[in-house]
């Protein structure tokens, strides 16, 4: 079973969610499948923000949607406080859903254009009634105020709000069920630059105020670093590197992480700009390369990279793991 190893999993009572060897495939006809996620393992502490960063097609959104079962899972386990989410079906799955809420990328598409925003926000309460004993109906207004939407606009419909305001409404909807965990799938990438910071700050505030655990998915390296405690870098369905946010950006070991950090318009000071010169195209996820999936574009690749898949290994003494046969040596203590 080709996985990238369980090294990054932590044996700790604070763990809220553990993903092991998650695999997701999508059929694309004629018997072919897209290997969207191919064996990824990680865990999230309660109260932690885990960022997942990578380019389009790396499987980061698929991981997020798999956790709340918006995709079918081919193999692997998703363990949330003793609940095996991957095996739940029907009513059992529905019962657990309020615990794990989601913020979507497109704030406008994520709100029903025909419903008043008060109804949108209180939908969770309407579904669950007093079952969960969470936000009582009359506290919806408090929730609206908390996310920065004046309750007097509760009777308006989504098209009367800007993108940033719609995203706040989406956050309020998710918060209404008192979730333990919030999965944010590119929550600011559709917003204007001047509004992004508002929403990022709001997420931080809400996390603190309501004791949330966040899973934050983005393609934007700076945004992910800003909100995350720990970050996973993904490439073509695999995790390349997992670690503490500051440590990972400070001492990136995987050549792909370095390439990403060097490719952004204002490259991170911790990498050499020439690290960004990766050649070629993303290989097809239908027939991913054997061995290390980055081998077709990696300047460091040797024979072993084409035959043997690198396993996750730990940087001694750090909360930092990478899967590479030829990790970039970094002089610690720059």
């Amino acid at each position: 079973m080709a996985g990238s190893g369980h090294a990054p999993l932590r044996d700790d009572p604070n763990v809220l969610l553990t993903i092991q060897d998650l695999e997701v495939e999508f059929p694309v006809g004629k018997g072919a499948v897209v290997h969207a996620v191919s064996g990824i393992s990680f865990d999230v502490f309660e109260g932690e923000t885990l960022g997942i960063v990578g380019e389009s097609g790396c499987g980061k959104s698929t991981v997020a949607k798999s956790i709340i079962r918006l995709n079918d899972i081919k193999a692997g386990s998703v363990d949330y406080q003793g609940h095996k989410l991957a095996d739940l079906e029907g009513e059992a799955l529905r019962r657990i859903r309020p615990d794990l809420q989601m913020i979507f990328q497109d704030p406008i598409s994520s709100l029903n254009p025909r419903r008043k925003i008060r109804d949108v926000i209180s939908e969770g309460l309407a579904v669950w009634g007093d079952d969960r004993g969470s936000w009582p109906q009359d506290r919806i207004e408090e929730l609206m105020t908390a996310v920065g939407i004046d309750p007097k606009y509760g009777d308006r419909r989504p098209h009367q709000f800007s993108g940033g305001q719609c995203q706040r409404i989406g956050i309020a909807r998710a918060l209404a069920l008192d979730p333990k965990m919030m999965i944010c799938d590119e929550p600011v990438s559709a917003l204007d630059v001047s509004v992004q910071a508002q929403v990022l700050n709001l997420l931080e505030d809400m996390k603190e105020r309501y004791g949330l655990t966040l899973l934050f998915i983005s393609h934007d390296l700076s945004v992910v670093k800003n909100v995350s405690d720990r970050i996973i870098v993904m490439y073509l369905g695999k995790a390349c590197e997992i670690g503490n946010a500051d440590e990972l950006y400070e001492h990136p070991r995987h050549p792909y992480t370095r390439a990403l950090l060097a490719s952004i318009p204002e490259p991170a000071p911790t990498v050499d700009p020439s690290d960004g010169d990766i050649e070629g195209e993303l290989p097809s996820p239908i027939t991913p390369p054997a061995g290390c999936r980055f081998n077709t574009r990696c300047g460091h690749a040797s024979d072993i990279c084409f035959t043997e898949e690198p396993q996750m290994q730990r940087v001694p003494g750090e909360d930092h793991y990478f899967a590479c046969h030829h990790p970039v040596e970094v002089s610690v203590g720059v």
Binding site: I68, L70, R94, R95, R97, P98, L100, Q101, M102, F104, Q105, D106, S109, S110, L111, N112, R115, V120, E123, G124, V127, W128, G170, R173, L177
Partner: peptide
């Protein structure tokens, strides 16, 4: 559309999603 996914994530049943 994502608002239908959102309703699913909230835990709304199929009938409710269809009607609402």
């Amino acid at each position: 559309r994502e608002f239908v996914l959102a309703a699913k994530v909230i835990g709304a049943k199929h009938f409710r999603i269809i009607i609402r």
